[in-house]
Amino acid sequence: MQYRFSFPLSLSILAVLCGCALASSTLAAEPARAEAKEQHEAAVPLKPAELVHIGKFAITNSMLVTWVVAAGIIVFAQLAMRKIKLVPSGAQNFWEWMVESLYNFLESIIGRELVQKTFWFFATIFIFILFVNWFGLIPGVGTIGWGHHDPTTGVFHVDQPLLRGGNADLNMTSAMALIFFLLWIIWAIQANGVGGFLLHIFGPKGETSGLLKIMMIVIFFMVGWLEIVSILFRPISLSFRLFGNVYAGESILEAMSTMVPALSWLIPIPFYFMEVLVGIVQALVFMLLTAVFTLLIAQHEPGHEPQH
């Protein structure tokens, strides 16, 4: 009951995410043209194909997928919650089950106070990544589009697919990771204050006294700089982990379906099951990592946690 309010918030973050994918994809759009010819032979191109140009912005096929999935989630959720019943059934039951189990799972990890504050972000990121990953597995995504006939083999090659898995685009995953990084800083400063935040990173930990304490202050000040490097690498590793897994999955499916032409209907099937699994595991990993990073900076006294 207490988290019904999170729905409009969640939907608004979806819109923000899609807008960021739009803004960041133009940054990577320029070198894409030069390398397009070189990557012609590669199974799945590393960069998304541009479909339409609106001014300086390019609409790419992976952006189209994120919009379609976001609109699908919004419409499905609104339809399911149109007539809210006390005893849920059907679509309302599905959403209540999903939101409630996510809430309980996150509460067991990051604690009661933090989950009330941050649940909207983690639930949205999980549901969105999960459905974008699974949407990319629907047959037709990546295989329907504009292409040409290879004159030597007579096989049709798709150069510009209409749709591409949303998380197989580094712009999308880095947009989500950067939004989390910004929110992480906001939540960290809200929980500790600016001084407490700096003390959390550079301050000495543990009980020491005398000369040892002075040495510990120097050592933990140095460790703080290592901590800063590790914090700055978090958005990079978050975005590359998701992108790498989804892109590698698409490449495997492509390779398996072209390896033996006569058996192209059979060989990819086990890999499809694996990709369904990878889709949910990567959504879970992204949500869990962001949640644990938030817990690490926002918990006040290590060892005195009320939860667990």
Binding site: S108, I109, S230, F233, I236, S237, F240, R241, V285, L288, L289, V292, L295, L296, H308
Partner: peptide, 24 residues
């Protein structure tokens, strides 16, 4: 299981980051 999951996820994240250090 839940505290172990948190520790394992953190350890895996720090281990994986080494590849990105090597890459960049």
């Amino acid at each position: 299981a839940t505290p172990i999951l948190v520790q394992a996820i953190l350890a895996i994240a720090f281990t994986e980051a080494i590849v990105f250090y090597a890459l960049y």
